[in-house]
């Protein structure tokens, strides 16, 4: 779908232009603000480096041991019935509990299959349209002193599966 690609190509330049023009209109020192914010970005990345090393080593060990391949073979029968790539089942499962662990598995997929392969595309889209259900729910519910979450979990699961289904379908069209 060439249309998707054209839109994708336009979004970052449009955001760039929009923000800079709006900032100028409000008479902000846009470049100074940019530099100030960019420092924050560097701190953020420096902050996640230890996490990334830990998780990528964890996933790297698991992959090198051959366990992930074995898991993919075991789940291949099931996943072929629902037209879902077996390699992505661990990502989907882990995604619900930990965003960074799911990132570790996704990077492993990018490394092995390439980010532009079908599996790489499904992973990219899926990681962009889902959230860490159990983590988010527990943090927010603890903050508000909630014990009974009522229909939050079914709703959250529905969203997540709708997102995953959409990722598989859209990646197939690209």
């Amino acid at each position: 779908m060439k249309f998707f690609l054209i839109i994708s190509d336009f979004i970052i330049p449009a955001v760039l232009l929009g923000i800079v023009v709006y900032g100028m209109k409000k008479k902000r020192p846009v470049y100074d603000d940019f530099v100030e914010g960019a420092k924050e970005g560097m701190k953020t990345v420096a902050g996640i480096l230890p996490t990334l090393i830990g998780l990528m080593v964890g996933v790297g060990v698991l992959r090198a041991s051959g366990f992930l391949d074995m898991l993919a073979q075991v789940t291949a029968g099931l996943s072929s019935k629902i037209a879902f790539p077996a390699e992505l089942i661990p990502v989907v499962f882990v995604r619900m509990f930990s965003s960074s662990a799911a990132t570790g598995l996704s990077l492993d997929i990018f490394d092995k299959y390439g980010p532009d392969s079908y599996i790489g595309l499904v992973t990219s889209i899926m990681m962009s349209c889902t959230e860490t259900i159990f983590y988010t729910m527990s943090v927010y519910c603890i903050a508000a002193g909630i014990k009974k979450t009522r229909w939050t979990l079914p709703g959250a699961l529905l969203c997540t599966f709708a997102g995953i289904a959409a990722s598989v379908l859209i990646a197939g069209m690209l």
Partner: peptide, 15 residues
């Protein structure tokens, strides 16, 4: 790398 922006927007809107 940015090619997934539009597909991701569609998928996230659906969810």
């Amino acid at each position: 790398p940015a090619a997934i922006i539009c597909p991701a927007i569609i998928a996230t809107s659906i969810s």
